[in-house]
């Protein structure tokens, strides 16, 4: 039961992060490979406050969102001037910059040693099984995010941001300042992913820069594409599938001599097959 709860919590954390990624990449067409860095900024901002300043969890929650929002806002100025491949490459570059900041700003992040013994939300101590409360908080947050994003996407604002994805020029001619729309989407998507980062930090209670290198940014985008771009339930499905899949492979009963290598190969093979047969992802409607 504890193991299932553990998988459910990790899946929920990544679902939340992928909701942020998909809001930018799926609905607005901002194919960014930097959300792993946003997750890291949220994780470090929250963890530093929780561990070194002993702030209550809700304060760390707000700070993680604010720090990531600020980073996304600043990044949006150079990034949103670019299109297509240049956008993707520069966003990827930001992943490296953020990783190097986590690694080298030793006074703040403790460098390569990372931060250990990060406290969780105070609420989790209400029950003996702290994992159930942790999961409940996360699920509530995911529901609120789903509801909020659904409302946004249904509104006239939501129609405009999807229009910018299809054709930015036409949307501008229609009288919309597409840059402001895209910037606001990018910031909110960063905030959501940053908060997921805080939950990851307080759940596993130990973080270091290698957790938030470019691999994570690529993983979040793969989760969004696999679940389906421009699909909220696809975000949750993609994240859950890629968290559950490696765990499932632990049960294959392979011989010890080839166990680890076979797991990695199977993981890659399953991803290739899934993308081959479902290029728009599990629930996707939009293809890059």
């Amino acid at each position: 039961m504890d193991y299932l709860l553990h998988i459910a919590i990790l899946s929920s954390i990544y679902s939340l992060a992928v909701l942020g990624q998909n809001y930018a990449s799926g609905y607005t067409g901002l194919i960014s490979i930097n959300h792993g860095a946003f997750m890291g900024i949220g994780a470090y901002a929250g963890a530093i406050l929780l561990k070194w300043y002993g702030v209550p969890f809700p304060v760390a929650f707000l700070a993680a969102g604010a720090a990531t929002g600020l980073a996304a806002w600043l990044l949006s100025f150079p990034l949103l001037k670019l299109k297509g491949d240049s956008f993707v490459l520069v966003s990827f570059g930001f992943s490296f910059i953020a990783f190097n900041l986590f690694l080298n700003w030793r006074g703040l992040t403790n460098g390569a040693l990372g931060l250990k013994a990060i406290p969780g939300p105070e609420l989790v101590n209400l029950l003996d099984n702290t994992k159930i409360i942790f999961l409940a908080i996360l699920l509530a947050l995911i529901l609120i995010t789903l509801w909020g994003l659904h409302k946004i996407l249904q509104s006239s604002y939501g129609v405009v941001i999807r229009a910018t994805r299809e054709n930015q020029k036409v949307t501008q001619i229609a009288g919309h300042c597409t840059d402001s729309y895209r910037r606001s989407v990018f910031v909110l998507s960063g905030v959501i992913t940053g908060i997921a980062g805080l939950f990851l930090a307080s759940y596993i209670s130990t973080i270091d820069p290698t957790l938030f290198n470019y691999h994570l940014s690529v993983l979040l985008l793969i989760m969004a594409i696999l679940g389906g771009l421009a699909s909220l339930k696809g975000s949750i499905a993609g994240a859950t599938l890629l968290i559950v899949l490696p765990e499932l492979l632990r049960f294959l009963g392979l011989p010890n001599s080839i166990l680890a290598e076979s797991q990695q190969i199977s993981y890659g093979l399953i991803l290739i097959l899934l993308m081959y047969y479902r290029p728009v992802g599990l629930f996707g409607t939009y293809k890059i």
Binding site: D2, Y3, H6, I7, L10, L200, I204, T206, I207, D208, T210, L211, E247, R250
Partner: peptide, 11 residues
């Protein structure tokens, strides 16, 4: 990796 180690230990 610390996250994978936590998953492995839980399993």
């Amino acid at each position: 990796n610390s996250q994978s180690a936590a998953s492995a230990a839980t399993k």
